[in-house]
Design a protein around this nucleic acid. Structure first.
Lengths: 110, 110
DNA sequence: TTTTAATATTGCAATATTACGATAAACAAA
DNA sequence: TTTGTTTATCGTAATATTGCAATATTAAAA
């Protein structure tokens, strides 16, 4: 086994799980935070920012890109990366709905 | 390898990554949504709600519990599960900060 | 053209995850 | 006590993830 049984869940559940999975590693959280910090697209120095070898960083970037969290456009012989606002807004909305539903209910039985 | 190099990242980055990782599977998203839907602690029928075998569900519940997303209290010979509002609020705040920072910057160069 | 710099891909080893049958443990009910 | 119900754990197979050295690719610069 080892493969998730995605076919049994709703599209929305699979979508959220896949977005969240793309961020389920400290290196990818760090990449997102770095792209946020520099406050612009960054062309180049992502590898130098992380305590990981270049192929490893490249792999993490690929996962973020595949999930849609970041976008990368070729800029000369470097690549310009930035965050996709829409996709991150999706996550914010999702967790916002969850906590607002939880706040409304005040029967905290546990 | 296969093991994440968590020691190279900040505590906060590791914490968020670990929370997010606990939700990085459609079954665990489904469990969270079910606990939200029933609008109370639920004692029992989580296994019946999911298209997975009982040991598999038990394992997913354990991961959610270890990460702190859910709490489980023994209730007779059943177990009463519910969401931990505080932990989910942490995620909401995190993604809220990210999107609000992204919205402020209007230099969308990509 | 040759060199240099930036990024991607390949291949592989170590480890983690997912899933479930079998079984155990805990406890209520008969 | 025996039985049934609920949940956890063990063991194991299949698959995925993580990390990096080696190498390839791409394009600017010399």
């Amino acid at each position: 086994m080892g493969a998730s049984k995605t076919e049994h869940f709703t599209d929305k559940q699979n979508e959220i799980a896949s977005l969240v999975k793309a961020l389920a590693h400290p290196a990818r959280i760090a990449i997102m935070e770095y792209l946020l910090k520099v406050d612009t697209c960054i062309c180049g120095d992502i590898v130098n920012e992380l305590p990981l070898a270049q192929p490893t960083v490249s792999q993490h970037l690929k996962e973020l890109k595949t999930a849609g969290i970041i976008k990368g456009t070729i800029e000369g012989n470097a690549i310009c990366y930035c965050l996709d606002e829409k996709v991150l807004a999706k996550l914010q909305t999702y967790f916002g709905n969850i906590t607002s539903k939880l706040e409304k209910r005040k029967n905290n039985c546990c």
